[in-house]
Design a binder for these strands. Structure first.
Length: 204
DNA sequence: TGCCAGGCCCTCTTTAGGGCCTT
């Protein structure tokens, strides 16, 4: 697959529309299944983190106060990612924060997201849960560190993405996996997956 | 202090409801 950027945000809550802000971001450049570059930073958006979120992520108000301003971090990470297609686990969530934080620095997203959650529901329907950590365990992939920290979660999403690519090649005989094909798969109803992949199968 | 969202997907569905997933 072409180089893509796998990203993960930690935030103060679930909705930028309700005033929630990003507290940490990680972005990994993944090429042919390998992580070739990494960016990670806490960011200071000048907001308090609710105690239950601090308990969930381990990211405290003090840690964020000592971090660079959110605007500076978002400029850096947007430049780091460039025009590469994006991937995230439950991308609807990360897409909302990516767009909202970019809008604050008067920049706009130039590429589409693929979603490893939607993909795993189709490619690994037998998994007992489609939470990131549960999928990593189900697939026998290595744990990357503390869950609910941006870099560890991005590393796990990148290794899940590679596993999903491998499954498409092995189990579904897909010749070449591209970001565009992933987008097509995630937008296809589960029952029509075989039909969606028919034109992408290896000749046997 | 307590509360807040939204898209996907299944089913005892489609004139709807509720669980899953992200923090």
């Amino acid at each position: 697959m072409e180089a893509v950027a796998v990203i993960d945000f930690e935030t103060t809550g679930l909705s930028p529309a309700q005033g929630d802000r990003a507290t940490e971001i990680a972005a990994l450049i993944v090429h042919d299944g390998k992580v070739v570059d990494r960016y990670q930073s806490l960011m200071n958006a000048g907001v308090r983190i609710p105690p239950y979120i601090q308990a969930l992520t381990g990211i405290s108000d003090a840690m964020v106060r000592a971090a660079p301003p959110a605007a500076e971090v978002m400029r850096e990470v947007a430049d780091f990612v460039g025009d590469r297609p994006l991937v995230a686990h439950n991308a609807a969530f990360d897409c909302k924060f990516w767009d909202a934080e970019l809008a604050r620095i008067e920049r706009r997203r130039r590429q589409e997201f693929a979603c490893s959650l939607l993909l795993s529901r189709r490619i690994l329907p037998q998994a007992p849960s489609h939470k990131l950590g549960a999928l990593v365990e189900f697939a026998g992939l290595p744990l990357a560190g503390r869950s609910h920290r941006a870099l560890a979660d991005a590393e796990m999403a990148a290794s899940l993405l590679r596993h999903l690519e491998d499954e498409l090649r092995r189990r579904y005989q897909v010749r070449e996996v591209s970001h565009e094909l992933l987008r097509r798969i995630q937008g296809t109803p589960k029952a029509k997956l075989a039909q969606c992949l028919a034109g992408h199968r290896q000749a046997r």
